[in-house]
């Protein structure tokens, strides 16, 4: 009698960054934003989070962009739960709070981007 192969271990996962599985350029942009507050870096992260949550079945082949005019539900294939996931993800990442009413008012990528900018800048220490 022998074991079939080594077991998976350890049982408790190490604490991981929410962006651990994002491309290194996105993680670098996140770090730069936290250090310098450059809005372009924040936009990079928000767009990457949107694309990461986009349903695979809705992605057109080769499409890796989310232009400002793209509607999250009608164009990018999101449902309301996936939108809630994006919001909670960004809340955790930037320690901000977004209400349901605020969430309901967002329909396009551009609106989401502008909204997160305003929220995050307001929450940053002066």
């Amino acid at each position: 009698m022998s074991e079939t192969s080594p077991p998976q271990h350890p049982p408790s996962p190490p604490a991981r960054s929410p962006l651990a599985k994002f491309p290194s350029a996105v993680r670098a942009a996140h770090d730069r934003f936290l250090n310098s507050g450059d809005i372009a870096d924040l936009d990079t992260v928000v767009i990457a989070v949107v694309l990461d949550h986009q349903p695979t079945h809705a992605k057109k082949s080769g499409e890796i962009t989310a232009p400002d005019t793209a509607r999250l539900i009608a164009d990018l294939g999101f449902d309301s739960l996936a939108l809630a996931e994006i919001v909670f993800f960004l809340e955790d990442l930037y320690k901000v709070t977004i209400t349901n009413e605020e969430l309901m008012s967002i329909t396009t990528v551009g609106e989401l981007r502008a909204f997160v900018r305003a929220k995050v800048i307001a929450a940053r220490p002066a």
Binding site: M1, S2, E3, T4, S5, P6, P7, Q8, H9, P10, P11, S12, P13, R16
Partner: peptide, 30 residues
């Protein structure tokens, strides 16, 4: 061929259960 191995369920050495039969090649512990 059996699937049993020594197993630490939750990082607590006082738990008296020491063996389990895990699935290999998956990590779904988060």
């Amino acid at each position: 061929r059996h699937g049993m191995v020594p197993w630490d369920y939750c990082g607590n050495p006082n738990v008296p259960i020491k063996v389990a039969a895990p699935v290999r090649d998956f990590v779904v512990d988060s």
